[in-house]
């Protein structure tokens, strides 16, 4: 089923996690649909399509449960590639794109290339959601500690300094 109105597009490439929850929450607030996309690149192993269908089915069930009937959920299994190109193309009719930020062994190259490429080329806002189950925590930078004492200028609502 294809979403009709501008929807929030979620690229599903693994277990649906925080990105899906973020997208459903945003869709409920915006009153729009959530569109789940899984991409099977031509030349993938024969089982990729079946695995993709299972991923989408599980993600859709989870999304519908989270949405509570307040945000329609649609799915799409795309046989095309490369992955960033497909997401960028679908983004032309999306309200925003939500991607799961992966980290850890095996994800460094693909996460970096897909997220960077989509964020660079998409015509709509792209939200990259970290996964606390996989992240080892944000990279530390001791230089940041030097900033802790710098001046902060708080201003009341809507008031310019």
């Amino acid at each position: 089923m294809q979403a009709v109105s501008p929807s929030i597009l979620v690229a599903v490439d693994d277990e649906a996690g925080p990105a899906l929850r973020y997208a459903v929450d945003a869709a409920r607030r915006a009153g729009c649909a959530v569109h789940l996309l899984h991409v099977v690149v031509p030349g993938s192993v024969a089982s990729a399509t079946g695995i993709g269908e299972q991923l989408l089915h599980a993600a859709a069930e989870q999304a519908e449960g989270l949405a509570g009937g307040l945000a329609p959920v649609s799915t799409e299994l795309a046989h095309a590639g490369p992955v960033p190109d497909v997401i960028v193309q679908r983004a032309t009719r999306a309200r925003q794109v939500v991607l799961q930020r992966r980290s850890g062994p095996g994800h460094e190259l693909t996460e970096g290339s897909t997220c960077a490429e989509v964020a660079r080329r998409a015509s709509c806002p792209v939200v990259l959601v970290p996964d606390p189950r996989q992240d080892t925590g944000p990279a530390t930078d001791t230089a940041l500690d030097d900033l802790a004492g710098l001046q902060v200028t708080p201003v009341g609502p809507g008031v310019l300094p």
Binding site: A116, A119, C124, P125, V126, P130, P132, P138, D141
Partner: peptide, 18 residues
């Protein structure tokens, strides 16, 4: 890119021509 990697909250990248 650096924000995406180092920040532990969702990061939204907004294109200029949205």
């Amino acid at each position: 890119g650096r924000c995406r990697v180092q920040v532990d909250c969702p990061v939204a990248v907004v294109p200029a021509d949205v």
